[in-house]
Write a protein that binds this DNA or RNA. Structure first.
Length: 437
RNA sequence: GUGGUUGUAGCUCAGUAGGUUAGAGCGCCUGAUUGUGGUUCAGGAGGUCGUCGGUUCGAGACCGAUCUUCCACCCCA
């Protein structure tokens, strides 16, 4: 047999897996609905120029580009122009296409626009646990409103979704880019905010010494690193407040995060935590940033933040948005690992009609049709195969009732039904059977 | 993108120091049971050992390349 395979980092989904995935999608959709978010979809591919430069250097490298075809490829090869080699690319996330969508359809939308979007994205990353090249994101974003109530709402949504998914151990880590900017200003490295935060982000992973090494390697001055030492020793919100007191933007970030925490506390939301080391790579974030982690999973299962000017690059200024993205595949892996999918997830067939031959099948499809009109899920075995095979089919699919319709049953106009769980069998009229189901 | 790791039957894995016909469990098929699945018993099918090349009298095993898997880094859902 030939060795068949899907491309690296991609997978097939068997019926059982699709049902479990749908359980996740249905759960998030249900919560999104409760808050008035509406669904949109965008194409799998975007123009390459729409995506390039939005995710930083690393992100650009991970974008799957679609090779030009025919004449275009030929002339691109001749001219040596790399940009015309691939004018289209697979989407890398749902946020940038959403920004493009908002700008393009601005006159058809009413703001603030609250949308959700559940679609696959593609990244040319190296696969490992919880990391795929094709995976689904479930994005919720509100665009066209500066209000911090949107941040509050997103935290509510996140905590509600994970509560419904029976994952109460999650922690919503929260930080604010403005605080990070403030820190950078205070240590006199205002242009090194990203370098500082990326290094800080690794604090709990590699320790203080290594972080300081990395800061130095990234070109942060010794003096600045010394000042940052205070943060390593005093990571709480109040000490950071003191630290950035002289920075206007830093104080703005502190106020924002305090507002968010106050409202969440009043709403009784636990499992949120201020994390000053949380950075997040995507460089379009400007305010609050979120990340959801679970103690039993190595990477984040949800992430997001506020972006003040994402639509600006597409020509629509002054439109702030905030959103989060649920990583459906990681959540799937986590639920599977913890065995948390509900048992009653499948609505499988309720009755299988055994096929004893053409004459008998004729009666079967009539009775089956009658049951289906009453809303029952019914199958008629298509071939007059050996009884053993048909019974095994019912068993494999966990079909609880098997109806055996042979000569005798047609004669008496009664079904012989067998309960596959108990093994009991009885003769019954179609209307009585319907009652029983 | 960097470093490492894995690949033997549909699945999970054995395979000893290179040496005849490559094994097990589970699953699958057939029969015991021609109108009865899940249990039991008896039998059977299924592998050019990821692929290509090399070393050797001889390679599943050793070497190289490539693909794949998983892991760490980078980055991220």
């Amino acid at each position: 047999m030939n060795k068949l395979n899907t491309p690296k980092g991609t997978r097939d989904f068997l019926p059982d897996q699709v049902k479990k995935r749908n359980y996740i999608f249905d759960t998030v959709k249900h919560v999104f609905d409760l808050y008035g978010f509406v669904p949109i979809e965008t194409p799998a591919m975007e123009l390459t120029e729409t995506l390039m430069g939005k995710y930083g250097e690393e992100g650009d490298r991970l974008i799957f580009k679609i090779l030009a075809r025919g004449e275009k490829l030929k002339s691109a090869l001749e001219s040596g122009k790399e940009t015309s080699m691939a004018e289209e690319a697979l989407r890398y996330d749902l946020t940038v296409p959403f920004a493009r969508f908002v700008v393009q359809h601005q006159n058809e939308l009413s703001f603030p626009f609250k949308r959700y979007q559940i679609q696959p994205v593609w990244r040319a990353d190296r696969p490992q646990k919880g990391r795929y090249r094709e995976f689904f994101q479930c994005d919720v974003d509100t665009i066209g409103s500066d209000s911090l109530l949107n941040e509050v709402e997103l935290v509510q949504i996140v905590s509600e979704v994970f509560e419904k998914l029976k994952l109460p151990e999650i922690v919503v880590k929260i930080n604010n880019r403005k605080i990070l900017q403030g820190i950078a200003e205070v240590v006199n490295e205002p242009d090194r905010m990203v370098d500082i935060t990326v290094a800080l982000d690794k604090l709990d992973k590699i320790g203080r010494e290594k972080v300081e090494e990395e800061l130095l390697a990234r070109g942060v001055s010794n003096e600045a690193i010394q000042k940052l030492g205070y943060l390593f020793e005093n990571p709480g919100l109040t000490s950071i407040r003191n630290f950035v007191a002289t920075s206007e933007i830093g104080m703005k970030g502190i106020e924002e995060i305090e507002f968010l925490f106050s409202r969440c506390n009043e709403l009784g939301i636990q499992s949120i935590a201020f994390d000053p080391t949380l950075a997040r790579g995507l460089n379009y974030y400007t305010g609050a940033i979120f990340e959801v982690v679970h103690p039993d999973f190595p990477s984040s299962i949800c992430g997001g933040g506020r972006y003040d000017d994402l639509t600006g690059i597409f020509g629509l200024k002054n439109l702030s948005g905030v959103g989060v993205s649920f990583g459906a595949d990681r959540i799937y892996d986590l639920l599977e690992q913890k065995d948390l999918f509900p048992q009653q997830i499948s609505n499988s067939t309720q009755v299988l009609f055994i096929n004893f031959g053409d004459t008998e099948a004729k009666q079967c499809i009539l009775w089956a049709a009658q049951l289906r009109r009453a809303g029952k899920r019914v199958e008629v075995y298509p071939d007059s195969a050996k009884l053993k095979k048909q019974m095994k089919y019912a068993d494999d699919k966990s079909i609880p009732w098997v109806a055996l319709i042979g000569e005798r049953e047609i004669q008496d106009q009664k079904l012989t039904i067998k309960n596959m769980n108990t093994g009991n069998q009885e003769s019954i009229s179609i209307s009585d059977f319907l009652q029983k189901l």
